[in-house]
Amino acid sequence: MARAKDAYVPELIHPASVDEAAAELARLGDEGEPIAGATWVMLGPLHKRPTKMHYVAVAGLAELRALELNGATATIGAAVTHSQLADGIDGEGPLAALAHAAVGTPRAIANVATVAGNICARPYPAADIVAALLALDAQVDARIGDDASSVDLGEFMRGAPTPGSLVTRVRATAIGQAARSCYERLTIRASGEEAVASVALAVDVDGQTVREARVVFGAVEAQARRCREAEDALIGDALSADSAAAAGRVAAEELDVAEGPDAPVDYKRRVLPGLMKRAVARLAAGGEDA
C-alpha cells in the first residue's frame, strides 16, 4: 500500500572511487550532481528548487571523508560532515570557528550534512560552514573529470558550482602566527534552528593588538559575506567589547541586509554590534561560550 514507486524517480549512482565519481559527473554535466547527505535535495520539491535526474553518491568515498588537521591548517574532504568537524576540531584552537559553526546543527542533520553540501547549496544565506571557511581563507579543490582546479572560496561562492564538477576538498588556514578564530550564531530559540545572523571572526594578535582580521557575516546578506570595513575597524586596536561593537556598527552600515522570513532587516542590522561583542568575548574566553 505504498506511495507510488515512481514518486522519486532520480537515479542514484554509487561510484567506487573519486575518479569514478568525477568521471560520472563530467559525463552527466548539467543532468547530474553529487549528493552526500541528501538533505538539500530531499527538501528541494518542498522549497520548489529544481532537482536533477541523476545523483552521484559521494558520502561513502573514504578519500572525501578525510579530515586532516595540521596546526592552523585543515584539509577537509568534501564529504566531511558537520559532526566530524564538531567532534574533530579543537573548539579553542586556531580553527575553532569551524568547530563552533558545526555544532549549531541538530546531530541527526549534522551527521549527514557535509562541507561541500554547505558551500554548494544556493541560495543558503545561513550556511554556517561557509561563513567560518571564508574567515579561514579557504581554498576549494574541484575536478571536472581528470582536470583539477583550485579556487578561493570567495570566488567559488560567486556563481553556482560548475556543472559536471566535483568538489573534492576544502583547505582552511587561520591567519598569522597567533591565529585564533571563533563563530557566533544568533538564534531566536535557544537551539535547533538556522542562525538569523552569525559572525565568523579570525584574528592574528600581536601582544594585545590585532594585526590582521577576518570578519564574515552569515545570514545577513543573501550569502555569507566578508566585511573588510569591519576588519579594518578591528586592526590596530586591542580586542575589546568597545572595538567589537564599533566593528559591528561599521558592518551594519556596510552590509546590504537581505529580506527574509527569519528576522526583520532592521533587527539584523541592529544586532551586529552585539553579535561582534559576543564573538570577541568568546575569543577572550578561549573559545568557550562566553
Binding site: Y8, L12, H14, G37, A38, T39, V41, M42, L43, A57, A59, S83, P106, R107, A108, I109, N111, V112
Partner: peptide
C-alpha cells in the same frame, strides 16, 4: 527534517529518516 520524530540510527549515527533516501 525538523521534528525528529523519524530519527533512526544508520551505522551508529542518527539520521532523520524522512529526508534520508533509502538508497544511501
Amino acid at each position: 527534517g525538523r521534528c525528529g520524530a523519524c530519527t533512526v540510527i544508520v551505522d551508529g549515527e542518527t539520521v532523520v529518516a524522512c529526508i534520508y533516501p533509502v538508497g544511501l
